[in-house]
């Protein structure tokens, strides 16, 4: 077992606890244990960067400092918004010594900026795609997955430095290794409306409806994501989308770790899939 640091973020400790179950179970099956960053705090999310710039650096900076103090060199932040915010703060701190010093005193912990932040795709890549492929017990031959990257997993590219922001392929590579088919479709990097579910539901329902419609039009029987907010909007709100647009989607929404876990022989319950709203296709 190797151990890596883990920054769950609020969603995975809240209503997206199915994602935490899934990520933990899937990575454990690959020999990776997650250890939580001590006393982590919220990354600030959109609220911080929309209302107060300094807070949007300070909140992630506090978490980076906590992770350093725990002795981690790498932490997994499965939520793409958290990992983007952590990486952005790290980049700003590393580029500006005065800011680093200021932030160290502001967050009351010495901060060097040495901790790297991984998203879930990267955590699976470093576990090894060949290793995943070799460990497959139940190939997912009935699956035709629309890999959905959404907004912040690949953007802004200068901050997250991950895959291609226009034509990413990293999720397809993993899903393909599980014996599943992936479809080509147009909404892979379009935004679902993210955390505005409650504040601006109309926008979220419309953007999410387009995503589900396009995935189905290209022959997908499920959508795969690594983002808790995408999952809320596409899965939990799917009934509302159907009502609003008088449409039937019945599209199963999986976390990438769900599919890897299923192929490795884990059960739906072990992966938290029984907590999804739309039943499996």
């Amino acid at each position: 077992m190797t151990e890596i640091g883990y920054y769950p973020g609020c969603a995975l400790h809240g209503s997206s606890n199915d994602y935490e179950t899934s990520a933990r179970a899937c990575l454990a099956a690959l020999g990776v244990q997650l250890r939580e960053v001590t006393d982590w705090v919220c990354c600030g999310a959109t609220a911080a960067h929309a209302l107060n710039h300094k807070l949007s650096v300070a909140l992630p900076a506090r978490n980076l400092a906590l992770a350093e103090h725990d002795g981690f060199r790498e932490i997994l932040a499965p939520c793409p918004m958290c990992s983007m915010e952590l990486l952005k703060a790290r980049q700003e701190i590393l580029a500006d010594e005065a800011l680093r010093a200021e932030m160290s005193s502001l967050v009351e912990l010495e901060l060097r900026g040495g901790v790297n932040v991984l998203n879930l795709v990267q955590a699976l890549q470093s576990a090894g795609i060949d290793r995943i492929k070799a460990a497959v017990k139940k190939p997912l031959d009935g699956i035709r997955a629309a890999c959905y990257y959404g907004c912040l997993l690949t953007r802004p590219p200068g901050v997250v430095r991950f895959d291609d922001p226009e034509q990413p392929r990293s999720m397809e590579a993993i899903v393909g290794a599980l014996g599943a088919k992936t479809v080509d479709w147009n909404y892979r990097t379009e935004c679902c409306g993210a955390g505005l579910t409650m504040a601006n539901e109309e926008t979220v329902l419309e953007l999410s409806h387009r995503i589900l419609t396009n995935a189905a039009a290209h022959g997908a029987n499920c959508v795969v994501t690594v983002c808790p907010m995408c999952h809320v909007n596409l899965d939990m709100k799917q009934a509302d989308i159907e009502r609003r647009f008088n449409a039937k989607h019945k599209m199963a929404i999986y976390y990438l770790s769900d599919l890897v876990g299923l192929a490795l022989g884990l059960s739906e319950k072990e992966l938290g899939i029984d907590r999804h709203f739309v039943a499996r296709t």
Binding site: W40, T46, L51, L59
Partner: peptide, 15 residues
């Protein structure tokens, strides 16, 4: 909403 979110974090540290 964004304001309530920030206050919430201030009070609880996590949402």
């Amino acid at each position: 909403f964004q304001e309530a979110f920030l206050r919430n974090i201030r009070r609880n540290g996590r949402l």
